[in-house]
Amino acid sequence: MDKKIEEIINVISKIRPYIQRDGGDVEFSRFEDGIVYVKMLGACVGCLAIDDTIKFGLEAMLQDEIDGIKEVVVVEE
């Protein structure tokens, strides 16, 4: 499951290039109990729009592609 999630985030995601264009990035951290944990990097750290980007972008896409994804949560490590 981890490999499929990473592939979607790193290769298939149409959202990641927009995040990178604005000086940020998203990195897969782990998957537990239906929750995908990601780490935000660069300009995304502290950005007020990140919640919408995650919920309406990355989370929606992952839920469309993989059964069993409940939500995407941003972690600070």
Score class of each variant (00 low, 15 high):
D2L: 09
K3H: 06
K4G: 00
K4I: 12
K4P: 00
K4D: 03
I5L: 15
I5C: 07
E6T: 10
E6K: 15
E7I: 07
E7H: 12
I8E: 07
I8S: 06
N10V: 10
V11E: 11
I12Y: 08
I12P: 01
I12D: 14
K14L: 13
K14S: 14
K14T: 14
I15G: 05
R16K: 15
R16C: 10
P17N: 08
P17C: 09
I19V: 15
I19E: 04
R21W: 05
R21A: 14
R21L: 12
D22W: 03
D22N: 11
D22H: 08
G23L: 04
G23E: 09
G23M: 07
G23Y: 09
G24R: 03
D25Q: 08
D25L: 04
V26L: 14
E27A: 11
E27Y: 03
F28E: 01
F28N: 02
S29Y: 13
S29R: 08
S29Q: 13
F31D: 01
F31S: 05
E32F: 04
D33Q: 08
G34N: 02
G34R: 04
I35N: 01
I35R: 00
I35M: 00
V36Y: 03
Y37K: 06
Y37W: 11
Y37F: 15
V38Q: 01
V38Y: 02
V38M: 05
K39R: 15
K39V: 14
K39L: 13
K39I: 13
L41C: 07
L41Y: 04
G42Y: 09
G42V: 07
A43D: 12
A43E: 12
C44G: 01
C44E: 02
V45F: 00
V45P: 00
G46I: 08
G46K: 09
C47Y: 02
C47S: 07
A49M: 13
D52M: 14
D52A: 15
T53V: 14
I54C: 04
I54K: 06
K55W: 00
F56P: 01
G57P: 04
G57L: 02
G57K: 07
G57S: 08
L58C: 05
L58T: 04
E59R: 03
E59I: 01
E59M: 09
A60C: 06
A60N: 11
A60D: 07
M61C: 04
M61T: 14
L62C: 08
Q63H: 01
D64S: 13
I66K: 01
D67E: 15
D67T: 11
G68I: 08
G68F: 09
E71Q: 14
E71A: 08
V72R: 06
V72P: 03
V73M: 12
V73Y: 11
V74T: 13
V75C: 09
V75D: 07
E77P: 13
